[in-house]
Nucleic acid binder design. Sequence first.
DNA 1: GTCTATAATTCGATAGAC
DNA 2: GTCTATCGAATTATAGAC
Lengths: 207, 207
Amino acid sequence: MAGAASADTKEQLLNVAEQLIAERGYAGTTVRSIANQANANLAAVNYHFGSKEELFRAIFSRIAKPIVAEQLTMLAMLQERESLPSVEEILTAFLKPCLKKIVHGESFQIVRAQFMGRCWSEPEPLQNIASGEFMESRLAFLDILQKVIPDCSRKDLNWKLDLVIATLIRVQNEAGKPDSLLKSSQPEDVDYAIQYLVKFLTPGMSI
Amino acid sequence: MAGAASADTKEQLLNVAEQLIAERGYAGTTVRSIANQANANLAAVNYHFGSKEELFRAIFSRIAKPIVAEQLTMLAMLQERESLPSVEEILTAFLKPCLKKIVHGESFQIVRAQFMGRCWSEPEPLQNIASGEFMESRLAFLDILQKVIPDCSRKDLNWKLDLVIATLIRVQNEAGKPDSLLKSSQPEDVDYAIQYLVKFLTPGMSI
DNA sequence: GTCTATAATTCGATAGAC
DNA sequence: GTCTATCGAATTATAGAC
């Protein structure tokens, strides 16, 4: 049926483009190579997404939206309790969805981590698209951090949250390499990476 | 004189290419735009550097070599003393040249920080060129860290040094933006950023 | 060393048949 | 929704005059 074929094509374009951009960057990935590897026609990209940039937005949005939703859910759970959450709990709520939700269907995908890691350093307007998707989550975590660490100014906490994101980006960028922290997408490796980052970052947050 | 004109052209190409790649990335920067903005002929790039990739190597090398030299000098000074250096001193010796040496002639250049920050996430083979230039420095700092923090395995310290680099990259990437840690290239802003990173990172290094 | 001119591809995007 | 064919422009790199 035509509808099913179209849905498959559109999803295949997203999958292939995600992988190629993760490897070669946005500017280094041609629409032709995406279409070819997805066994689709060259014109299919523009038909389904309108332009190369809109394709990028669709890829990023598909990954980011569930992550942000999970971040806000975990944050809400922390805020439902009577006592203030710990810095460790806050950092875990921020980082865990970013590393856990790099799943595709059922299996973890290392390429998704690499894609996300790359997006933060892509030239404009891509970086803007990326940071925009995480704006709501970022502000929410800044608010709770300010309550838990009242000695730090908001600007200071903004810098610190940026350093947290910095380490996340690096782990994603290096994901899959032989001696990296996130060597594989096996659940135990992902859990270990989350714990490792949280332990490393927590003491610096309050100074 | 022709020789002087050539030296000027070659240096101008390096300067302009550094700025454009910092803004648009390597793949997003055309040799034409470099030549045009440098008031040079299109063929000048290939004449002076052989290829676009070799031009990139020349830019990175020009920045990295003095940084690595300064890192090793500061490290040697720490090792000349009788007692072991502190983690703070080691991190300062690593980070300070990376942020201080982003000078060009006499004035600090924010674009140089942005260029360096971008290189770590450029697709291969550029990332390989970049990390290769810092290999010697990285190994030297791993050695001293292992002496000062004997409780951590070398693999563990390798991850931690990677997280240090992660925050450095982020600061460089965000350099020049309104509310960033490295807002300007004024010496006081640079000194503050170095101190801030060291304070943030030090406690996490030993856990 | 610098220039013009151009080779040889490749790019993103679209028109129009089916 | 998918296809072929192609537009118009841009790409790196080079050849050869000056």
